[in-house]
Amino acid sequence: MQVKGRVFKYGNDVDTDVIIPARYLNTTSETELASHCMEDIDPDFVKNVKAGDIIVAEDNFGCGSSREHAPIAIKASGVSLVIANSFARIFYRNSINIGLPILECPEAVAGISAGDIVSCDLGAGVITNETTGKTFKAEPFPPFIQEIISDGGLMKHLIKRSQNYSAGAAE
């Protein structure tokens, strides 16, 4: 899976309260959640983000609450990939489960600035900063996790697998 977009860059410990403030958690609507994404840390994010754009951040991205609304809001805002030095563990698991691509790559974080155009081959974990021409290599997810992400999340993946299974059994 290939993604490409413009970079929004953030620092350490971006928490789920700034990704999607709890005052908006009275809904499960993806578009409504996306309309408040990053509001408390970057009020212009929603105005500027375009489909395919990429978030790059430093340590412990997504720390705090377990709200799955956080990766949902990011994905629904059009973001195609989050690259960070490290992720908080519940956010990490949630991102895989809802099909938001994420990669840990400190070299890329150091070599990418806000506004750069970045592309990534998710399967190979190769990140290219198109603005500077530099490339970086992240550890890609094992195939089964990549499949969950490309199917659009754990539930869609499970449905697809069970359909394939029944189709196979019928033959």
Binding site: S66, E68, I90, R93, N94, I98, G153, L154, M155
Partner: peptide
């Protein structure tokens, strides 16, 4: 809920997850 880890006080292994893991 991220604070599910509270029950470790009782000698349990408990951890917070997201809604999809909860559904599963």
């Amino acid at each position: 809920d991220s604070h599910t880890c509270t029950y470790g006080a009782l000698g349990a292994f408990s951890m917070g997850v997201g809604s999809t893991d909860m559904a599963a």
